[in-house]
Design a protein around this nucleic acid. Sequence first.
DNA 1: CACCTAAACGGACTGTGGTCCGCTTCTATT
DNA 2: AATAGAAGCGGACCACAGTCCGTTTAGGTG
Lengths: 204, 204
Amino acid sequence: MSTEPSVERTTFDLHAHPERPERRDAARNRELLLDAAHRLVDRDGVEAVTMDAVAAEAGVGKGTVFRRFGSRAGLMTALLDHAEARWQGRVISGPPPLGPGAPPLERLLAFGASRLDRTITSADLMVAAAGRHGRSGPAVAFWTVHVRHLLTELGVTGDLPLLAMALLAPLDVTIVGQQLEAGVSRERILAAWTDLVGRVVAGC
Amino acid sequence: MSTEPSVERTTFDLHAHPERPERRDAARNRELLLDAAHRLVDRDGVEAVTMDAVAAEAGVGKGTVFRRFGSRAGLMTALLDHAEARWQGRVISGPPPLGPGAPPLERLLAFGASRLDRTITSADLMVAAAGRHGRSGPAVAFWTVHVRHLLTELGVTGDLPLLAMALLAPLDVTIVGQQLEAGVSRERILAAWTDLVGRVVAGC
DNA sequence: CACCTAAACGGACTGTGGTCCGCTTCTATT
DNA sequence: AATAGAAGCGGACCACAGTCCGTTTAGGTG
């Protein structure tokens, strides 16, 4: 309850801050903490990123970590945020086929491949970022909007928002993680997803 | 590490125990704990099911809870287990269209509707049961095998195991929970899933 | 029945996420 | 420059998951 920390971004509305900005010391500490957390991830892996450890590494009090990020999941989301933002940038205005310029189906397939790779490489962080309420809203919103847009261009009709989520679901950490653990290769996952997209898009 | 508790069931290979059975006191305590946990869930919700509370309610030591169920997620899985087993029974040998007897497409749609309902009604427990390693393996295995079987009967070709998972993915707690939280109705989710199945199955 | 051993037990102990609150620091205003 | 009050800070504190180990008990064997 009470004052939600303003950690409901995860890009998309990148850095749109209607409210008054953070005080300077607060901003400084945020950077300090983010750097510290990144350092810990690089050095010892996601597991080692405890709130106390981050606070100590950054040289601030533990309370500050929670004030800035709300929870461990929030901190993890923030860590993911930089990379996610750059990735979103590439989708919106990078080179094809991920970016605009390629035909919609190619873009969609490139999107899936790229998301799968991000899921695989950042699986640990994503699991840690998926607190209580599943995945971080804004990022998912971006994905679905984009897929929906491509589906529209492909002339697919129906409940596009949910259809988009249905296509995204098999690329989620929980599902992909499960498959990897079962020994399924990245290539096979991607092939199956490509096949799925083909079936969904096929106007007959 | 060391001695894994034998809590890797979640039905499917229902109660196949090659190893020597539990000692009588152990079995008794398992029941005591399961009952206590169920009581707590009914009375105060999943959140109230702390390991200490369960131990106290059952009148045993905390260590015993962990010895029997390995972790909180394991306990939750065990709680889910009874209902899951009965449900699996209905799928295997209950009345159509969920059980055998109906045409495969009808069975598949009934399967989806039924799973969606189970996901919705037990969302809390499922989230709590999904520890570290995503969803509980055996249950998912049963679902995929069944869907795969129906897809085969429908004459669908391709990477059936992964295609089955792709169809199951949108019915997962994390995804469904997200949609519900966004205000999407059960009916709309089901309609979208039905549509998805139609597209995938359509041999054209 | 007495004995022996593996299994099970209980609860103190530890590590971590998250809260709380009295104190400090920034910044807008005059 | 003085000041007021909001925003931020730190770290003691709490709850809960999970571990450890000395003690107890089930149940097979002679």
